[in-house]
Simulated assay, not measured.
Amino acid sequence: MALLWRNVSYPRALAVSLALVLAVVLLYGGLTSTTAFGAYNSAWDGASDLRDLADDQDSEAILAQNTTAYADHDPNETVSVVLSPDESYGQTDARRVESFIREGGTLVVAEDFGKESNALLADVGAQARFDGRLLRDEHNYDTAPTLPLADNLTNHPYTEGVDQLTLNRGTPIEPGNATVLATTTNYSYVDANLNGQLDESETMRQYPVATVEQLGAGEVVAVGDPSLFINAMLEREGNRQFARNLLAAHDTRLVDVSHLETLPPLVRAQFALQDSSLLQAGVGLSLVVLVAYLTNVTSLAGAIRRRLTPGSVDSPLDADALGDPFAAADRSSVERWIHERHPDWDPERVGRVTDSVINETAEGGTDD
């Protein structure tokens, strides 16, 4: 091992080290996301812990990049989570989601100030609506009034083992005919003008922040704060258990990112590869060709070095003419040797292999 490292030049070692660092950086960037509520965002505002929590429930979480995924699973055994979508679902996508719910599926929609979630609820026929204004509580909060505690919980399987929910800049829910799962205390109010204080036009009272309602054979759960499910907030009391209850009640768990985020490049490539047998065959064939090419070039370079190294049984060269056995080989001799054995190679390819052989010979490379 020590002899191996002695034969490696410092410039080459530095180049290899930089290449490894770059590869790690590109790999990390290709597998992670910085999108808020992103399933591959491991920062405080990401939802990677929610994806891991779904994986911990004896089955893998499935990322739905398209609403067609709803038809691929048994609705009666499936829950889908939608966190503050950025884009409208549109009629076609909304019909797919509605069909999923009415056939027995469970849809969890979490929102604070966006408009697309209310449009989705209306399109699927749900009654609950997100108020869209900031909820505060000056008396019963976590670290600030904008992190109010909801400790009035209805007895329900989704609230089993949950003492309270902790919101982070959440919004109330107008339940309509939905069953209220959790409400804030009597000290909470809607800060309509966002001035950070209770005004005469603002009233303190309990506000619903989580609801559930039947829709056909399925149900819709509305949560007035998508932040409840992000990495930082899942550590707050009650939030993780509430999320676990929603997921554990179903065998299949979809995380609907179809209208939320662009997946990291390598993750997107992985899903594309999984979905296309033709692409799998193409990648496999490319790898075989690449390995064959590298093997051929490596074998050829080794043969040339042996041919040109004084003292080798294959060498036609005089040792006195080359001097030091680790000195750079004569370029014209290398090119001539390659051309004699591969007359079909173009000059550019001959030049690349010649450069590789000369550089390795000059640095002391051997096949021993």
Rank of each mutant, 00 (worst) to 15 (best):
S258Q: 13
A128Q: 13
I304Q: 08
G46E: 07
P85N: 04
D72F: 12
E174Y: 12
S17C: 14
A301P: 00
S299E: 07
L50H: 05
A39Y: 13
D320M: 10
R244P: 00
A301D: 05
R51M: 10
A64D: 05
D86C: 00
L3Y: 09
G284M: 10
H156Y: 08
L294E: 04
V8T: 12
S188K: 01
Y207G: 01
D256A: 09
V97G: 04
G218H: 12
Q91T: 15
V21T: 11
E200N: 12
T166C: 10
N152Y: 11
V209I: 15
G365C: 01
G282N: 06
V357D: 04
A69D: 14
L135A: 05
E116A: 04
N296H: 15
T354R: 11
R102W: 12
R306I: 02
S84G: 11
R6L: 10
D275Y: 08
S17D: 00
L167A: 06
G132V: 03
G38K: 10
V223Q: 05
V297H: 01
L4F: 15
M204S: 10
A69N: 05
D93T: 04
A217L: 14
V25W: 15
I358M: 14
V283D: 02
L254A: 08
R349E: 11
N177M: 07
G351I: 01
D123C: 04
G218K: 09
T252I: 14
V313Q: 06
R352L: 15
G90T: 00
V108F: 12
D55S: 06
D131S: 08
S315K: 05
T295P: 00
Q91W: 07
A210Q: 08
A126H: 07
E160N: 11
L287P: 00
E98P: 00
T366Q: 07
L3P: 01
V16H: 05
I230H: 05
D56A: 13
P265Q: 06
V221G: 02
E335N: 02
A144M: 01
A329W: 10
A243I: 04
N155E: 15
G238P: 02
P226W: 14
L147A: 06
N118T: 03
L198P: 02
T171R: 05
Y293W: 15
D344V: 07
A321Q: 12
G30R: 04
P264V: 11
Q274W: 09
V209E: 04
G351R: 14
E202W: 11
R136I: 01
G161M: 08
P11R: 12
E219C: 01
S333C: 01
T35L: 02
V108Q: 04
K115W: 06
R341Y: 10
G351L: 06
L167K: 03
F130V: 03
R169S: 14
D163R: 13
L83C: 06
L317T: 09
L260F: 09
V24G: 08
N7R: 13
L279W: 12
I101G: 01
G282A: 14
